[in-house]
Each structure stands twice: as C-alpha cells, then as structure tokens.
C-alpha cells in the first residue's frame, strides 16, 4: 500500500467495504471504470462478497456480479488481520503477474451496453440463496 487516495483516478485498489444496494451498482461500476489500469478489487466482508444476511430485493448478491474481484475477505465483520492478509494475498497475486500476461480483467468485454459483465444464467446461479436464507419465507 502506498497511500490512501480518495479519488478513483489515482487509485490502484478498490476495497468494497460493505453491502452494495442495487441503487449504487452503477456508481461502483463507474468508479471502477474511472480507475486507471492496472487495477485490483478487494471485496471486504460477507456482505460485499455474497450479500450476506441481506438477501432481499434491494441488495446486490456479491459485487462480483458488477465488477471483477481479485481477493475476497470473509467475515462479518472481517478482523483487521483478515483485511491485511487480503492485501498481502493481493501482493502475492501481483508478484506472480507479468505485464505480458493476458489477464482477462485487463481486457474485460462487457456483454451489453448496460454494463452486464457476466451472462445472466451465471448471475442467477451465483445469487442463489444459501445457508439460512434458503429457509426464508417468500410470500406470494
């Protein structure tokens, strides 16, 4: 880590540190698009990674349906050591990369003009309820 910059245009890493409602999905996508290459994304915590306990109409079920994610940090909330370990894992991942590698993230092609990055079947599959929310009552 070099320094914290609260501007996407000088940033290398986007850390999504909480739940992402659908209303903010186009915002985080735009922030990600504004970051210069090369760039990485850390999904911090259960809510950012999977939607967590917020399995409802308003919440994105994992930010990887919106932007590509490099490191997922589990936990609700993650311990500070967990986040640092995630950053170190990202270091490790970057060390293994070469500028000449073909990294899919660098040449990401969006599927439609709205900015969908995964096929709809795949989004539905990874957004399936799991754990406790399988038993959630679904009215109507």
């Amino acid at each position: 880590m070099e320094r914290q910059a609260f501007s996407p245009r000088q940033a290398d890493v986007l850390i999504c540190a909480g739940r992402l409602p659908f209303k903010l999905a186009p915002v985080i996508r735009r922030i990600y698009d504004q970051m210069p290459q090369p760039k990485w994304v850390i999904s911090m915590g259960a809510c950012a990674s999977t939607g967590g306990i917020f399995d409802n109409y308003a919440m994105v079920q994992g930010i990887d349906t919106i932007v590509p994610v490099d490191v997922y940090v589990p936990g609700c909330p993650p311990r500070p050591e967990g986040l640092l370990y995630g950053v170190l894992l990202l270091h490790k991942k970057i060390k293994g990369e070469s500028l000449f590698d073909r990294v899919p993230r660098r040449e990401e092609q969006l599927l439609d003009e709205r900015g969908l990055r995964l096929p709809p079947e795949q989004i539905d599959e990874i957004s399936e309820p799991f754990g406790n929310s399988v038993h959630q009552f679904r009215s109507a």
Binding site: F22, K23, A25, P26, V27, R29, R30, D55, N56, Y57, A58, V60, Q61, T65, I66, D112, R114, G115, L116, P120, E121, I123, D124, S127, P129, Q136, F137, R138, S139, A140
Partner: peptide
Amino acid sequence: RKDFPLRGRFSRAEQVRQALGANP
C-alpha cells in the same frame, strides 16, 4: 407491500441488468 416477494419480482440477473442501466 405484503404481496411483494422478499427477493423482488425479477430474477437476480434482470435486477442487476436494470440497476446497471439506471443513470446515477
């Protein structure tokens, strides 16, 4: 509303598609 399903009426993929299409 009580007749509204907890996870919304559309599939998750359609929800993501519509949300990304919204102008912030």
